[in-house]
Design a protein around this nucleic acid. Structure first.
Lengths: 342, 342
DNA sequence: CTGTTAGCGCTTTCAC
DNA sequence: GTGAAAGCGCTAACAG
C-alpha cells in the first residue's frame, strides 16, 4: 500500500509509521527490523507485519547520514563509448557484493572540467571511494591526494606513483602472445601494432622482443606501427607479405588489426593457421569469435581488474604500501587462428 | 585542508565548522553558501572564505533527507555486456544535465531475483526515478505499479501497456532500409535476418514487406532467419546467391550479419555496391566503419532514446496519458556499401 | 525487553 | 541581517 502526503503524492512509509501501526516506539521498531536480539519475538512479529503492510523500506539516506558511510562508490570514466569500463564495472559490482554497494557511473567524456564537476558531485554525495577508469593504459593526471576518500585508478594508471593504480600487464601480454606462437612451431614472426603513441603499443612490443630474444630469435622486419584499425591490419599485412613472404606467425596488437590481417591473408590465399598463425589482443568476443577462423587472442582480464580495483578501494587506506601501479596478469584464449581445428 | 576526527581519520568539514570559523550561526552560514539574499555582503564573504579554507562541501545526504528528493536515478539493466545500455546511459546523463543528477547503474545479469534485489536497493536509496533497459526489443515483465517512483522502460518495453516505455521503431527501420535500397535503383532485394524469436527481427521484416509492397515489388526469396552472427551472414548469403543469383540488394538485419554478407560477396567476386548493395542495422561503428566497403546502416538513435527516457521519468507522473509504448524514429547512415564512393 | 533522548548535517521558519 | 529551534528518518546509548 502506498501512503500519500497532503498534496496527494505518494510518500514512502517511515519507521514512525511502522511503530505507530505496531503500537511500539520508534526505537523498538528499529531494533525489530534490524534483527537485533533485544526484542521479544511477539513484538518483532508485530513490527515486521506492520512494515510489510505499509511496504516500509528503510531510508538509506538517513542511515548513511548517521553511519558516516553510504555504501556507494563512484566510477569516473572517460571511456563510456569504449569497452573497457563495462567489464571493469561488472568486476567491481561483483567484488562489492551485489546490493551492499551501489555504483554511481559518471562519464567525463575526456573533459577535465567535467571530470572535476563529477568528482565534486560524488564527494558531495559522500561516496565511500572512487574508481577512475581511463581508456588507454597511458598514465593519466592524478586527482590529487587531498581527497577525503580512497581513489583507485583502473586501466589507466595515475601519473603519481603514490596513488593506487591497477593496470593490465601489457609487457606480459606481448610475451605471452609470442610464446604461444613459438609453442605452435612458428619461427618467422612479425608484429603489427597500433598507434605508437600508446603505452599499450610500446609495452606489448617490449614483451615481444624479450620473448623472441629468449628464444634466440628476431622479429621479422620492424614492429609496424600506425593505428588501431582493421584498415591498417589489412594494409600492413599486405606490405608485410610482399616484403617478407616467409613469415609464418603474426602478432596483431589488437583484435581489430588481427581481423584486417585475416582478411588480407585470405585474399592472398594464405591458409590460417597452416601457413600463417595469427594472434590478436583484447579478446573482444564480437570480433574474435566471428572471424574465419576464430581468432586466438590475449584477454586482459578486465573483470578481474575491476574486482581488484574495488578491493583496493577498501584496503588502500589500511595499507599504504599498496600504493604504486600494480600490473595484473593477462591470459591467452586459444582459437582456430593459431591451432588447426580438428 | 582535510580535518581529522578523534581516531585520526579524515573527516569532511561540516557547515558548523564553517560557521564557527566565520563566527556566525549555522543558519547564516547555510544562507550565505546557498546564495540566499538575506545575508549581508560582508558576512557572506567571510563565510565563503571560511568554507573555501576548510574545503567544505555540503553533505548531499543531509540535503536530500530534508528535501525529500535525492537527484539520483537508477538505471536497471540486463545488458551490461551489451552495447545498448551505454548510449542510453549517455543520453540520460545529457538530459538530466550533468551534475544535477547522478545515475546508479545496476546490472541484473538477466536474473529476476537479482533485479528485485537491485530494485529494492535503489528504492532504499530513494532514487527519484528508475529507467529499465532491456537487451532486446521484446516486451519484458513490468516491475508493477506499486512503486513510489516513476519507472520508464527503455529499449525493451514493458508488457504492461499502462507503463511508460520507449523503444526504437523497428518497423520504420525495416522500411527505411528498403526505401534506401530502392532509391539506389535496386529492385531484386533479399532480407537476411537474425533469430526469428526476436521482436526486432519480426518488426523489421514487417517494415520490409510494407515498403516493397508500396513499390509494387516482392522480396527475393523468403526472409532468411537464423541467428545474429557473421557466420550466419556468410552462410545465408552464399545460399541466397546460389538460389537467386539475380539479387541486387541485401538488407541484413544486423551489422554483424552484414559483415558476413560482405565477406561472402567478396569471396564470390560480386562487387559492392556496383553488383549488390548491402545495408546493415544498428550502425555499430566498430563493424560498420571497418568493413570493405564501409557499411551503410540503420541507426536506432539510442542516445536520443536515453534522453527521452530520462525526460519521461520526470514527466511520467504529471501526464498519465503518456503511458504506453512510444516508438522512436531511427535514421539512415549512408556509407559505401550502397553508394559508390567517388 | 522497551522507551526516552540525543544526535548525523542540513534547511527552514520565525523571533529578535 | 542574524540566530535559535525544529525536524528530515534513522540508530545508539542509556534508563527504566
Amino acid at each position: 500500500m502506498v501512503r500519500v502526503d497532503g498534496a496527494g503524492n505518494p510518500r514512502a512509509a517511515t519507521l514512525s509509521d511502522v511503530a505507530r501501526l505496531a503500537g511500539v516506539s520508534i526505537a523498538t521498531a528499529s531494533k525489530a527490523i534490524n534483527g537485533r536480539d533485544e526484542v521479544a519475538p511477539a513484538t518483532r512479529q508485530r513490527v515486521l507485519e506492520a512494515a510489510e503492510q505499509i511496504s516500509f523500506t528503510p531510508n538509506q539516506l538517513a542511515r548513511s547520514l548517521l553511519a558516516g558511510r553510504t555504501g556507494t562508490v563512484g566510477l569516473l570514466t572517460s571511456d563510456l563509448e569504449g569497452r573497457f569500463v563495462i567489464p571493469i564495472l561488472m568486476g567491481a559490482e561483483d567484488a562489492f557484493g551485489a546490493g551492499q554497494v551501489n555504483v554511481f557511473l559518471c562519464d567525463a567524456r575526456g573533459d577535465a572540467i567535467r571530470e572535476q564537476h563529477h568528482l565534486k558531485a560524488l564527494l558531495n554525495r559522500r561516496v565511500d571511494g572512487i574508481i577512475v577508469v581511463g581508456r588507454q593504459t597511458d598514465p593519466r593526471p592524478s586527482l590529487g591526494h587531498d581527497l577525503p576518500v580512497p581513489v583507485v585508478y583502473a586501466y589507466a594508471p595515475s601519473d603519481d606513483p603514490t596513488d593506487v593504480s591497477v593496470t593490465p600487464d601489457n609487457v606480459a601480454g606481448g610475451r605471452l602472445a609470442i610464446e604461444h606462437l613459438l609453442a605452435t612451431g612458428r619461427r618467422r614472426i612479425a608484429h603489427i601494432s597500433g598507434d605508437p603513441a600508446y603505452a599499450a603499443a610500446q609495452d606489448r612490443a617490449v614483451g615481444v622482443r624479450a620473448a623472441l630474444a629468449d628464444a634466440g630469435l628476431e622479429l621479422v622486419g620492424d614492429v609496424m606501427f600506425s593505428e588501431w584499425s582493421e584498415h591498417w591490419g589489412r594494409d600492413a599485412s599486405g606490405l608485410l607479405l610482399s616484403q617478407h613472404p616467409e613469415v609464418d606467425g603474426i602478432f596483431a596488437a589488437s583484435d581489430q588489426i588481427a581481423r584486417g590481417v585475416l582478411d588480407t591473408l585470405r585474399d592472398l590465399g594464405r591458409r590460417v593457421p597452416e601457413d600463417v598463425a595469427v594472434i590478436g589482443y583484447d579478446n573482444w568476443e564480437i570480433l574474435a569469435t566471428n572471424s574465419r577462423p576464430e581468432l586466438t587472442s590475449i584477454d586482459a582480464n578486465l573483470q578481474e581488474l575491476g574486482r581488484v580495483a574495488a578491493k583496493r578501494v577498501f584496503t588502500a587506506l589500511d595499507d599504504e604500501r599498496r600504493s604504486g601501479t600494480e600490473s595484473l596478469p593477462v591470459r591467452l584464449v586459444i582459437r582456430g587462428s593459431t591451432i588447426p581445428r580438428r
